[in-house]
Design a protein around this nucleic acid. Structure first.
Length: 344
RNA sequence: GGGCGGAUACCGAAGCAGUCAAACGGGGCAGACUGUAAAUCUGCUGGUUUUUAACCUUCGAAGGUGCAAAUCCUUCUCCGCCCA
């Protein structure tokens, strides 16, 4: 029992059906005469590093491809950060009317990070809770979810592009030597071949004077979380992924990518996402469309595997096998009993 | 019917007598992950065991040469191209 406010988290590998399930749950919570006295409805907070971006709809499998802003008046977040985030909830489903947050808040040429995600998500979750509604976090970005469920305290050192550029030009051997001297603890555990990580560790250590290893901490829990993981036999998941890729192409991924490419550089992190990257190669004439589709499928399989590796180590996750459509009822019951446990 | 070329592990592909259980790539499997995370990075991928090592079974099939063959010879099967 916890005296913290409750948060439901729906997670799982890509294409496991998170979006659809979350919407179903939210609708049930929002149904009139619902089982929750004092609560009235649920709202969805996305934990997806790519759906964050506007104009990337088909490739990121956003809830629905047709944007439709939900008209609400009570959302008025004023962030201390300088970036003009649009935190208005979005709904892609006219019928459901369930607000979705942290989708479409940035233009693809803007940078984003876990630290920012955490700040925004916590703020929104608290707001949803304060209004007496059930927050449902949905997504597959393990680090983003962990930032909330584990209250990861990310070193407050902003990316320093100039320093990074300089370090990128330095030989890895020298980088490692420097790290060994400045932060022997990180040196011991860090992946010696992952230059990107080494550079970040150095960036934090150099700019604060405090070793990176001394700055990675987990704070006290922020919420009482119920994490539900959607699982599926590997083969079946891969088939679903493959079918979805074909669907994306048919519903206009190529056109969407073309439009993005006109406005944005391929070097942007947002443009490195699965689907866009491969269609980019096709548009530049480097590979055939057939090959591009194949590459997207393989990359997505691999991504799903990485997600599973991440999630597997978290023993708090309650795994539900997504074998048939009645699962949503079962999950709803699990959520219900979690929510009706009163606070201590 | 005749002449070439090819058949290598899940797939593609190197190797063309010894240092070959066989490079490399893809796939697959496993793992890491604290401000780029759909990113970035690592390991394994014929079998068994006492797993930084040993043994067994593999390079279309069957025979052969040789101390030794995926590598050379013979026949056969299949595939591709060319001539009839």
């Amino acid at each position: 029992m916890s005296n913290l406010n409750k948060l439901i988290v729906i997670l799982g590998p890509t294409a496991s059906g998170k979006t659809e399930l979350a919407l179903k749950l939210a609708k049930k919570f929002s149904a009139k005469g619902g089982p929750f006295s004092g609560r009235n409805g649920a709202e969805i907070i996305s934990a997806d590093s790519r759906q964050i971006f506007k104009d990337m709809n088909i490739g990121t499998a956003k809830p629905y491809a047709k944007n439709q802003k939900l008209k609400t008046k009570n959302q008025n977040y004023k962030l201390k950060t300088k970036k003009p985030y649009n935190l208005q909830p979005t709904t892609y489903n006219l019928v459901s009317g369930i607000p979705h947050y942290l989708i479409d808040i940035l233009s693809p040429d803007e940078k984003f990070s876990v630290a920012e995600y955490k700040e925004l998500a916590v703020r929104i979750i608290r707001d949803v809770q304060n209004r007496g509604k059930v927050p449902i976090m949905v997504g597959g970005a393990g680090l983003y979810i962990s930032a909330i469920t584990d209250n990861i305290e990310i070193p407050k050192v902003k990316p320093n592009p100039a320093l990074r550029k300089k370090l990128e030009k330095t030989s890895p051997v020298i980088l490692l030597k420097r790290l060994k001297k400045l932060d022997p603890n990180t040196f011991k555990t860090i992946d010696k071949k992952n230059i990107r990580r080494i550079i970040r560790a150095l960036e934090v250590t150099i700019s604060t004077g405090i070793p990176f290893s001394a700055q990675r901490a987990k704070g006290a829990p922020l919420f009482d979380c119920l994490q539900i993981g959607l699982s599926m036999p590997r083969e079946k998941l891969y088939k679903k992924i493959d079918v979805r890729v074909e669907k994306m192409i048919k519903s206009g991924l190529i056109q969407e990518t073309k439009k993005l490419a006109k406005k944005h550089s391929w070097k942007l992190p947002s443009m490195s996402g699965i689907g866009y990257k491969e269609i980019g190669m096709y548009l530049r004439g480097e590979i055939t469309l057939k090959r591009a589709k194949e590459l997207i499928k393989f990359a997505t399989h691999s991504y799903a595997r990485r997600q599973m590796t991440w999630f597997r180590r978290d023993e708090r996750i309650k795994w539900v096998k997504m074998n048939n459509k009645s699962e949503s009822n079962r999950i709803f019951r699990i959520c219900k009993s979690f929510l009706t446990k009163s606070k201590v």
